[in-house]
Write a protein that binds this DNA or RNA. Structure first.
Length: 430
RNA sequence: GCGGUAUUGGUGAAGUGGUUAACACAUCGGUUUGUGGAUCCGACACACGUGGGUUCGAUUCCCACAUACCGCCCCA
C-alpha cells in the first residue's frame, strides 16, 4: 500500500502549518522582548554530548536515544532535547568569554527525537521551543525565565495552567537528601511496586512521583527535600518564591516533582494542564530549571545556567482544545476567470500585474468553464473576480466584479496592468 | 520495552462467510453554448492496512507484521 511515514512522525500540512507559524512567531516576539536571541545547533550531536549531560542512567539516554554509527564509525545521536547541544555550542564557541554580556540569553526551536511509543502529544520526532540563560546565579534569572514562559503561554491564549516549582538544592543538599530518602525507603522495599524497586537504586527521587497508589502511600511520609537544603540553597529557593510573588505569578511548591534529566539543581519548574486532550491527569507542557555545573561538565568553565523547554505538539493540542480557530481563514484578493483557451496568456499577465501591485491573485489552470471558475473563486474567498473572454480581448477591456456586492464594472485592460489598486478603488466607489 | 483497542473510497462512515460493498460530504460534469454560494440529475472503492492460513468460497474466521489511539514505563 505504498509508503508510510516512520512510526511516531507526522506530516504538518498546509492549514496546520499556519498555526505552527503563529506559535513560532509569538515565541520569537516574546523572546525578543526579553532580549533572547536565536541559536541554531545541529539536529544530531556526538552521542557523548547527551550521555554526559543527561546522565548515563537516565531513561532518555539508556533507552530513548535515537543513536547510530555513521559511515565514519562515529557514534551519533539525534538530539533528544535542546539544552545539551546549546551548552556544547556555548562552550565550543567560547561564549563564556568576557566580551559577551552575561547572562548570555538564547532560544531555539526545532525537532527533537526520542525512541519511544507514540501517544497523544508524544511522538518520536517532536518539537520543542526552548531558552537558556548562561552566567547568572541570581534567583532573579530563574524568575525571569519562568515569567517569560508564563507570558508565552498566555500570549498563545492558553489558560487553566498550573505552575509547579521545587528545588533540588545544591550538591551538598542533594547528597544529604539522597541518603535520607534511601534510608527511609529501604525498610519499605518489599512493599514498593516493581518499578519503584528498580528506581530505588537507580534514581530514588523517581520513587517520589510514582503513580502506583501504594507507592504514593509510602511516599507521603517520606522525608522532604526542603528539610535537607543547605542555608544557601534555602536562600535561593526562598528568593525565587518571593520574586514570583512580587510578579504576582501564582505557583505551587511540589516537593515530589523530579526531573528526567540528571543535570538539574536548585530551582526546577513545570507548567502543567489537566486538559484531557493530553491524556488523564496533569500533563506537562513546559518544563525547565537551573543547571549549574552542566557547562563545566561539557568542558567549559564553572558557569551557571537556567532554561526551559516547551513541547510544541502539546501546546498546539491545548490551543485547539481551548480556542476556536486562532488562525484566520485564508483570503484571496483577486481570482481571474479566463473564458476560452486563447485568453490564457492575457490571464497570466493579469495575475502577474496584480501580484506586482502587492495583492494575491489566482486563476484556473484546468480549462474549466466560467461557472466552475466562479465557484472556485467563491470557495477561495476571492474578494474580486476579473473576467476575460473573447469580446474583452477584442476591445482590450476586463470585467471586474466585487464578490461581496455583486457589482461588476468594465475597465480598460491597460489599467488592470498598470494600476490595479486604482481599479479596486473605482469598484468600491460604485 | 509491556498490556489493550482499532485499521473499509479524497473524507465521515454502514455492512455481510458466497453472483451489484449502503448512505452522506467533498470533487467533477450536466441542468444555464460566458459569471459565484441554491435545486435537481449523473459520475466517483476489480476494492475493504500488509502477508500468510482455514474454507468449495473471506472484506467478513485464525495467525503474524505494520501503523494509529489508550494505559504503564518515561517524558515535552
Amino acid at each position: 500500500m505504498g509508503y508510510q511515514k516512520p512510526k511516531g512522525t507526522a506530516d504538518i500540512l498546509p492549514g496546520d502549518s499556519s498555526q505552527w507559524q503563529l506559535v513560532e512567531k509569538t515565541a520569537r516576539d516574546v523572546f525578543a522582548r526579553y532580549q533572547f536571541n536565536e541559536i541554531r545547533t545541529p539536529l544530531f550531536e556526538s552521542y557523548a554530548v547527551f550521555a554526559r549531560s543527561s546522565g548515563d542512567t537516565s531513561d532518555i539516554v539508556s533507552k530513548e536515544m535515537y543513536d547510530f554509527m555513521d559511515k565514519g564509525d562515529r557514534h551519533i545521536a539525534l538530539r533528544p532535547e535542546g539544552t545539551a547541544g546549546v551548552v556544547r555550542a556555548f562552550v565550543e564557541n567560547k561564549l563564556y568569554g568576557p566580551e559577551y554580556q552575561k547572562p548570555y540569553k538564547v532560544y531555539y526551536m526545532g525537532p527533537m527525537f526520542r525512541y519511544e511509543r507514540p501517544q497523544s502529544g508524544r511522538q518520536r520526532q517532536f518539537h520543542q521551543i526552548g531558552v537558556e540563560a548562561f552566567g547568572s546565579e541570581s534567583p532573579a534569572a530563574d524568575v525571569e525565565v519562568i515569567s517569560m514562559a508564563m507570558r508565552l503561554l498566555r500570549e498563545c491564549h492558553i489558560t487553566d495552567l498550573k505552575l509547579a516549582i521545587n528545588t533540588l538544592g545544591d550538591a551538598a543538599s542533594r547528597a544529604a537528601y539522597h541518603e535520607a530518602l534511601v534510608s527511609y525507603l529501604e525498610p519499605h522495599f518489599e512493599e514498593l511496586s516493581d518499578d519503584s524497586k528498580v528506581r530505588l537504586h537507580k534514581n530514588p527521587l523517581r520513587v517520589l512521583d510514582s503513580k502506583d497508589a501504594k507507592d504514593q502511600e509510602i511516599v507521603k511520609d517520606a522525608p522532604v527535600i526542603l528539610d535537607y537544603l543547605t542555608p544557601e540553597a534555602t536562600a535561593h529557593f526562598e528568593t525565587v518564591k518571593h520574586l514570583l510573588e512580587t510578579l504576582h505569578i501564582p505557583y505551587e511548591v511540589d516537593t515530589e516533582m523530579v526531573r528526567g534529566l540528571d543535570y538539574y539543581n536548585h530551582t526546577i519548574f513545570e507548567i502543567m494542564t489537566n486538559n484531557k486532550v493530553l491524556g488523564h491527569g496533569y500533563t506537562t507542557v513546559l518544563a525547565g530549571g537551573r543547571y549549574n555545573g552542566l557547562v563545566e561538565q561539557l568542558g567549559g568553565p564553572d558557569m551557571p545556567g537556567v532554561g526551559f523547554g516547551l513541547g510544541v505538539e502539546r501546546l498546539l493540542l491545548l490551543m485547539n482544545a481551548q480556542n476556536e480557530a486562532l488562525v484566520p481563514e485564508p483570503k484571496l484578493d483577486v481570482y481571474v476567470v479566463g473564458i476560452g483557451a486563447q485568453t490564457s496568456a492575457t490571464t497570466l499577465q493579469i495575475i502577474e500585474s496584480i501580484r506586482d501591485a502587492g495583492l494575491s491573485a489566482e486563476r484556473d489552470y484546468l480549462d474549466r468553464k466560467p461557472k466552475a471558475q466562479f465557484k472556485t473563486a467563491n470557495k477561495m474567498n476571492a474578494q474580486i473576480v476579473v473576467t476575460i473572454g473573447e469580446s474583452e480581448l477584442a476591445d482590450q477591456t476586463a470585467h471586474v466584479k466585487d464578490m461581496m456586492s455583486g457589482i461588476e464594472i468594465t475597465v480598460p485592460l491597460a489599467q488592470v496592468y498598470t494600476d490595479f489598486k486604482a481599479v479596486q478603488q473605482q469598484l468600491n466607489m460604485n
